[in-house]
């Protein structure tokens, strides 16, 4: 069997629908059409009345999910692209994020955000918004980087009693494959050592994991052993796993596809500096995409986001201190 990352997301939703009557799916073009990326292919047929097309109303889509969650359901909302979740920003951060703290009533639902860049996607179909949502209290923000994690983390997200922002990466949809889907994965909030090493640590997540692994393999040819940490979760951050890795390597580079000002990379570095300054043999570095809108042409796009090449360069600098 050959399962893609997208299959994993589809299968996770099928399983969630099958095993829990409280689950329903709501999003644009997701019913008969099966979704812009086909992540809900045939689910409307298999689960009649539980996969619903929504109007183009991101604010109301999330508002509806919150109301249903308050009432005991477990909705999964598909944003057609992560970028359009900005329309629902208010419902996500002010309604969903505050509800449990204010009222004591949890709002369990999942928003799936097809995230990240792709050739030719341009400024409005490419964004990585994990740092934005992680900034707000009351939300869990997940970033599966593997087929296995896409599957188990989505199932775990549906079971979680709090709102989850599920950042699935579009670049991984079709290309990333696994032999089979796992029965279970690491718990939510735990990072994973994707590659063990001793000379430097790369902390990353999502599609950037694969760029970082390529960079590590390249440097391995020069006998550098790079450890790569797959965060899996942008919020909470598994600070312990990161610090343990830095304790082994003494060097850290953070890599993220999101914009450079603040965000996940800055947060990880602040924690490492604050709690593990004594572990560092070199200044912590970070690599983000550039501080411009995400460009359309592949030549520009490739130079906008971190790649294996730019990660390798940054690692050489880190190793040179």
């Amino acid at each position: 069997m050959n399962v893609t990352y997208l299959d994993a997301i589809r299968e996770a939703q099928a399983k969630a629908l099958a095993r829990d009557d409280r689950v329903f799916l709501y999003g644009q073009d997701i019913a008969a059409f099966g979704g812009a990326f086909k992540a809900t292919k045939r689910l409307a047929e298999e689960f009649p009345g539980r996969v619903l097309d929504s109007p183009i109303s991101e604010d109301a889509m999330v508002g509806l999910a919150i109301g249903a969650a308050i009432d005991g359901m477990r909705p999964i909302i598909e944003m057609q692209f992560a970028d359009f979740s900005s329309i629902a920003f208010n419902q996500i951060v002010n309604q969903a994020g505050t509800h449990f703290y204010r009222t004591g009533v949890p709002v369990p639902f999942v928003i799936r955000l097809p995230s990240g860049g792709n050739k030719g996607s341009g400024p409005f179909h490419s964004q990585s918004l994990e740092s934005l949502y992680a900034h707000f209290p009351g939300l869990v923000v997940l970033m599966p980087a593997t087929v296995e994690d896409a599957y188990t983390m989505l199932l775990d997200a549906v079971e979680l009693d709090d709102p989850v922002i599920f950042c699935e990466h579009k670049l991984l949809y079709y290309h990333l494959k696994a032999d089979k889907l796992p029965a279970e994965g690491l718990p939510i909030g735990k990072a994973r050592i994707a590659r063990a090493g001793t000379h430097a640590t790369v902390v990353t997540a999502g599609a950037m994991l694969h760029e970082a692994l390529k960079a590590a393999n390249q440097l391995a040819e020069e006998a550098w052993e790079i450890e790569v940490v797959d965060l899996r979760s942008a919020k909470p951050i598994d600070t312990d796993t990161i610090l343990a890795s830095v304790a082994r390597t003494g060097r850290i580079l953070c890599v993220a596809e999101s914009f450079p000002w603040g965000g996940l990379n800055a947060e990880v570095i602040a924690r490492v500096v604050g709690e593990g300054f004594h572990l560092l043999d070199a200044p912590p570095l970070r690599l983000n995409s550039r501080d411009t809108p995400i460009p359309y042409h592949p030549n520009l796009w490739a130079a906008h986001r971190p790649t294996a090449a730019s990660i390798t360069t940054a690692l050489r600098k880190l190793l040179g201190f």
């Binding site: 508002g63 509806l64 919150i66 109301g67 249903a68 308050i70 009432d71 359901m73 002010n94």
Partner: peptide
């Protein structure tokens, strides 16, 4: 912002 939240409760009732 509250109107769609009421919609969600009502849709939940329908689904149930």
């Amino acid at each position: 912002a509250m109107v769609s939240v009421v919609n969600g409760v009502l849709l939940s009732r329908r689904l149930r």
